[in-house]
Amino acid sequence: MDSKVPLLSRRTFLTSAAILVTTTASVVHGRTFHQGMPWAPGAADPPAQVRPGPWAFFTSDEAATMEAIVDRLIPPDDGGPGGKDAGCAVFIDRQLAGPYGRSDGLYTLPPFMPGSSTQGYQNPDSPGGRYRAGLKALADHIRQSQSGKTLRELSTVDQDKLLSTLEDGSIKLKDIDAKAFFAMLLQDTQQGFFADPIYGGNRDMAGWKLVGFPGARYDYRDWVERHNERYPLPPVSIMGRTDWVSKG
């Protein structure tokens, strides 16, 4: 290394860092709490209840495709409603229209490098953008390969075949990683099926009833020692359950 180049030396760096730390520390005033944490009346900050209504993110075509997909990923049967009737598409729609869909709060500037499997998605596109591009590529593919049809016009058998090729990556979509797109669809559908109904999916707690999850309860002290017994209380969501409303 050319010693003439005025690079920051290790010594200078450490010295300035130390100065920075001490000067910063001297002006930081920690808050001291006496007799418990601060508390204010009526200060709850709950999530807003998702209401039925027009699609917030999807176009009507996208929405129809999504409803068909979620109803194949979780088909209706004797055990309860499928993904469509449970509101999974509504859940995904509202998520994509919100901060999650826009990648708010994520660092999305370069450099973009392939990450390991545990590092999650490493590209700049937001979930909203990935859905839009993925659904478009999928629609184009179906139109070309199935003589101008849309996904919802296919038989359920053909829909399942198509989704299987997405899952194993044997289908080639233009500029889209089919496998990753399928993984996202499946994960979000599952989340819609099991998330609290306040977010638009898991309608009437269908997902929770299916697996016996008691929902937004928070005290199981009486049950800690009781094994192999069915928990008797029905699931309850953040906003309650139907028995909270008078039928009178």
């Binding site: 418990g36 709850a44 309650g240 409303v245």
Partner: peptide, 29 residues
């Protein structure tokens, strides 16, 4: 409706708080 905070004294310093339920329960509830 809006919760409440118990008093904290030297001999009972915990001051437990009741959370607000105004957002979760409507007037009928």
């Amino acid at each position: 409706l809006e919760g409440s905070r118990a008093v904290a004294t030297n001999s009972a310093p915990t001051a437990p708080a009741m959370p607000a339920f105004d957002w979760r329960l409507d007037n009928d509830q």
